[in-house]
Simulated scan of single mutants.
Amino acid sequence: MHGPAPSGWLLVALCAAAGAYCLLRMRGSAGEERRAAGGEALMGFGMAAMAVPGTVFTPPSWAWPGYAVVFGAAGLHAGWAARTRPHHLHHLAGAAAMVYMAVVMASSPAGAHRHGGSGIPLVTGTLLLYFAGYVLLTGVRLVPAAAAPGGGTAAAGWADRPELARACRLSMGIAMVTMLLAL
């Protein structure tokens, strides 16, 4: 992605940690919650890989179309699942944003990967507006869970903490806003 290397590495760490936590949630869940955690893990690790600073590692030419195919397939799956479970619409929006960023990066000249100035402003702005709203809404929903006395039981495992799942989603939303701003 564009931008300075330190912020890129912070995004890599944040997204990889979120992806790892989602794998823990996936391991401790079943059914629909397990599938949602798997999709979020894919998103976290994909965002981590995409956020590696371009000054440190320049992906091969096939990487960006590969991202577009993987996240296009994830978007199709989320769209299909959203027919009966509307909360998958957010996963569809996330996959669409990843496909968009991959296509923009694939079509940008090599030098532009470090200097910005790529992307379609209307699409980027729409995605930014969606994810900024998502971050604000998720943050508001997280506050009561974190502020409640005994906001989680001491016996609950890491994968069983709904406030941690919300914090994970919030951090990935913030990372998506950051990546779209850097586009």
Rank of each mutant, 00 (worst) to 15 (best):
G75H: 02
S107R: 13
R85S: 15
A96Q: 05
R85Q: 15
G66W: 15
G111C: 11
S118Q: 10
G125V: 00
L89I: 10
A96P: 00
H91E: 06
G72M: 02
L89D: 09
G125W: 00
H115L: 12
V70I: 09
A102R: 00
A102I: 04
A102H: 05
V123S: 03
A73F: 01
L92D: 06
A110C: 10
A78F: 07
G72Y: 05
G75E: 01
H91T: 03
S118E: 07
A82N: 13
T84A: 12
V69D: 02
M101D: 00
P121V: 09
G125Y: 02
S118D: 11
H90Q: 13
M105I: 14
H77D: 13
S118W: 05
G117E: 01
L89G: 06
G119E: 02
T84R: 15
A93K: 07
R114F: 14
W80V: 15
L89Q: 09
A74T: 00
L122M: 12
L92A: 11
L122G: 09
H88R: 07
H115W: 10
M105T: 14
V69G: 06
R83S: 13
G75P: 05
V70M: 07
L76V: 07
H113D: 11
T124Y: 08
F71R: 00
P121M: 10
Y67V: 13
